[in-house]
Design a protein around this nucleic acid. Structure first.
Lengths: 304, 304
DNA sequence: TTGCTCCTCACGTCACGTGAGGTGGC
DNA sequence: TTGCTCCTCACGTCACGTGAGGTGGC
């Protein structure tokens, strides 16, 4: 025994020590193997591991940190840089961020299953609605972008202006108009929005249009009736994003399948137009990053 | 191809299908191997897997259930018993219970790390207080158990009665008195409590005492001053239980290291007695089930 | 033909757990 | 001496991911 000479009276064999620490013997052997936590002394003859009581405190801290979500690799950094100010605090701050996300995710999962069971009481065992995943093609479009105060009336005027401009050049393609929300979230006041009116490719330069990039996969959810239904639809998408671990990777889109328009100075196909607000049909589309490519980041700091 | 003769125009190769479903090719091969989700057709010559678009709906449901927390084994039960009423609902109900626990656990973890970071701002990087794990020895004791309305005054009277009875037989051992809470939780009104006064083993039958069983490991936390501090201490223990995944396995104990007593008709060692409420010292002890033995239960139903 | 996609097989990940088969210590 | 505890070694778990090395199809 390096310090203390012969095996001291306080040295415990692995089983006793494991019970005191409330961990398994296998865990102690594993921690030694990976170099995280070593016995105070190993008998070179029998191979028996001996631990001292004062090692309990460290082991219990390590278990606590594991339970909080650090990996064994993280724990090695934790003990190796114990004297560095900042390192541990940084690790804790990163851990906090991850725990925040996980807590929100667990909440959303629970809510979803609760809604599902609620529906089952209502007689159907079909799952609650989730967004469909589709690709959104790129398209040439005449767009007007602005930061506006009250979204609804401003967007209405911007669409009229864009439609009229497209009509003047006979550039309008027979595809639905849509709106891009350049802010991170949906909101009805003070938003950075861009109205998009699809046009023929050939008319791009003539009307000063641009290519609006599509996306390989977007979470899409349609609703009918007044635009007051949009926030609820958006929440459903957000919850699904949280549950599935997907992340939004671009501006939210709102595509208008059927909508109200006075068509002064422009003409749209009849099937685009709703005769009443009940006939409105709108789809929210959130571009998502390929979710099986998501790397799960560790807490540990990079090597110096 | 069993149904439909030749490879139909809607059959997709694995890569295309995987992208549409937002899963990896490896996942699809894995699901086939474990018999969870099969391609519509496998070319016997090239070994290529072909999937039909109408398989997307099932795959997306399976991924949703995985994201919600079901295991692949659970998913097999889910698809195999799709026509049984009750089975799916039972699985959902079990999943809900598990998610509730997990959500609470994530909340507690997050709170703990937040408290830790708070402390760091205060200058110390020491972790927040957690209970110590100790064993509690069994002891012979004279006990009085009752369901009482207002805990504090009733317990005071019960201890006096027990101490006097022990003193009459000169049975009192020099160990601290303690209280057992036979209800699941700590509460100050309408509780089932048992006051325990340790006695000599030899006096067991003479005074009508019993053996109060100890426990191999208990989460212990001491506090000083008024008993008003008990709920806060208890919350710390509860949060730690949640974080570490340990479960309470017996009645809560409250051991009085220093306390107030008028000692009418009995005598206690001076070191037991507090001269003022500030000197009170009390320890809460929650027996816990060996936490590395906890089996994580699945959601799947047992075989019929 | 090139280049992309597909195939299988074997091994890796993470943090241990589960035996098998054998030895040391009180 | 018995019985318990300890040892090492190899393999299993879970849900895939990561290559290697090779082939099929447009």
């Amino acid at each position: 025994m390096p310090e203390g000479g012969a095996r001291s009276a306080t040295a415990l064999r692995i089983g006793t020590f494991a019970r005191r620490a409330s961990v398994s013997v296998k865990t102690l052997r594993f921690y030694e193997r990976v170099g995280l936590f070593r016995p105070a002394y190993v008998d070179s003859n029998s191979g028996y591991r001996y631990y001292r009581l004062d090692q309990l405190a460290l082991l219990r801290d390590l278990r606590l940190l594991r339970d909080l979500g650090l990996s064994v690799a993280d724990l090695k950094v934790w003990v190796e840089r114990c004297d560095e100010d900042g390192t541990r605090l940084t690790m804790l701050a990163r851990l906090r961020e991850r725990l925040r996300e996980q807590a929100a995710r667990e909440r959303d999962r629970l809510r979803f299953v609760e809604r599902w069971i609620e529906r089952a009481r209502g007689g159907t065992l079909a799952r609650p609605i989730v967004p469909a995943i589709r690709c959104i093609p790129s398209t040439p479009a005449l767009t007007i972008r602005d930061r506006v105060r009250a979204v609804a009336p401003a967007v209405y005027r911007m669409f009229e202006a864009a439609e009229r401009a497209a009509a003047r050049h006979e550039a309008r393609a027979e595809r639905r108009p849509f709106l891009l929300w350049h802010d991170a979230r949906y909101r009805d006041r003070d938003a950075d929005v861009e109205v998009c009116v699809p046009i023929h490719r050939a008319a791009l330069t003539a009307v000063g249009g641009i290519w609006v990039e599509g996306t390989r996969s977007a979470a899409c959810l349609a609703f009918e009736g007044s635009y007051a239904g949009a926030p609820a639809a958006y929440r459903i998408i957000e919850q699904w994003l949280s549950i599935s671990g997907a992340r939004a990777s671009g501006p939210l889109r709102e595509t208008y399948y059927r909508f109200g328009a006075d068509q002064k100075g422009y003409r749209l196909p009849k099937r685009f137009i709703a005769r009443s607000v009940e006939e409105y049909r709108t789809e929210l589309q959130v571009p998502i990053a390929g979710r099986f490519i998501e790397p799960t980041p560790g807490i540990a700091l990079p090597h110096r």
